[in-house]
Computed example of a mutant assay.
Amino acid sequence: MADDKYPTDSDRRRFVKGVVGGAALSGVLTVGAAAVSSATDPTEAGGGIMEYRSAVRDLGPAPRGLPQIPIEIDDDGYLQGLWPEPETVTAGGQEVVVSETEIAGTEYTTEWYQYCGVQTFEGIAPDADGQDAYFRYPEALPTSEYPWMEEVEGREQINVEQFADYEQWGNEVGDTGVGKPAVATWRSQDVPPEETVPVIIIRSTQVEEAAQEDEWLAETCPQGFIAYLNKCTHFCCVPGYKRLDEAAEYNAENKIYCNCHQSVYDPFNNEPDTFVSLPRPEGE
């Protein structure tokens, strides 16, 4: 179908054959999702059309864009994803805990991350114990793509100083100076590996320029930083930015590219998007 933006030069049959393997991967990455579906009654609180901000999907079978994570920077230069103070509200006749706030006229809620089973992860619960909002380096670093990350001393939380060369940074993929990336984890301290929340962070002059014209970006992308939940909305794979040479075949060498089924997201084209959110399970 023309409107799914699937690459015209890709073999559609290859995609169909890949569904079996992709579904297996999705099952690994969405532990607990089936339980949520079976426990969720459409008549309960929540659910319906939700607007969020995303990296626009340019190409491929992914149904929607990658959800953005608003960034805050503390006084010591450490980056964290905004996590509004949890509060208990009454919705649909029941009390539920939510984490939400308004930013530049947009309702930001942690329910933006309702896909691939992420909504069932321990750290994504609004009132999760033992979790803070700082971005941290993952235990396994992508040294072949971003070798600079391995060179960071005292590696744990991600700091602004580690991106000082963002206007000149480059690797063997795409153009130099487009944006310096890092992979990170978020709200994933002391959780099972399958519940780690992966994040892609980019610091770029393009983000700085866009923030001058967009109040939302001005509030959520300080000092040229932007972050997205790094799970493809198609089959929950983990895509990459400036990571693979083959991305150039899909004009994605300077974009976020998922090599599993060639979905492409533009991190510098950030727009409102919508999805159908899940109602909250009874008693949650």
Rank of each mutant, 00 (worst) to 15 (best):
D245A: 14
D132A: 09
T43G: 05
A125W: 11
D41W: 07
S26W: 09
Q223A: 10
A128H: 02
H261V: 00
A62T: 05
P7K: 04
E209H: 09
T88M: 05
G18T: 00
E87F: 03
Q80M: 14
G27E: 12
W148H: 12
C260D: 10
G130L: 05
E282W: 04
Y113Q: 01
N230Q: 13
A55L: 06
A55V: 02
C221L: 00
E271R: 13
Y134N: 03
P67M: 03
Q212N: 09
D76Y: 10
N230P: 08
D74F: 03
D75R: 13
L278G: 06
A39H: 06
G65A: 08
D76W: 00
V97F: 02
T8R: 15
R57F: 04
Y52C: 00
T110I: 11
G48W: 13
L59N: 10
A45I: 11
G174W: 08
G224L: 04
V56N: 06
V89D: 02
P126S: 06
S277W: 00
P42E: 01
Q162R: 11
E194C: 01
V98C: 00
V238N: 08
T88I: 12
E100G: 01
T120V: 08
G48K: 10
F135A: 07
E213A: 14
N270D: 11
P84T: 02
R64H: 12
G22L: 08
W148Y: 14
G154H: 03
H234E: 10
E194I: 14
Q114M: 10
S144L: 09
V98M: 09
D74M: 01
N254C: 08
G32I: 10
C237T: 14
F225R: 04
I124C: 08
E246R: 13
L244D: 12
E150K: 15
E195H: 13
L29E: 09
G240Y: 04
F15S: 11
I158P: 03
Y113R: 03
F163D: 05
E161L: 02
Q212V: 02
V152G: 01
Y78W: 06
E139I: 05
A39Y: 04
E167Y: 02
D127E: 12
T110P: 00
G21H: 08
D58G: 01
R155I: 10
I49W: 06
V238H: 09
N269T: 15
A182S: 14
N259M: 07
V20F: 10
K231P: 00
L217M: 12
A252N: 01
D75P: 00
Q206V: 00
E282D: 11
G22H: 04
A2I: 09
G105K: 01
I256D: 12
D41Q: 09
A23L: 14
P142N: 06
V152T: 11
D132C: 08
R14M: 13
Y78F: 15
W83Y: 03
L229P: 04
Y250T: 02
G179P: 04
G21L: 09
I202W: 07
W83S: 14
E85K: 09
E246H: 05
Q68N: 09
N159A: 15
G224Y: 05
D132F: 07
S263M: 07
A45V: 13
G174V: 08
P70G: 02
G22Q: 14
S204T: 05
T106A: 13
G60F: 06
I158S: 04
G60E: 04
Y113D: 02
H234C: 02
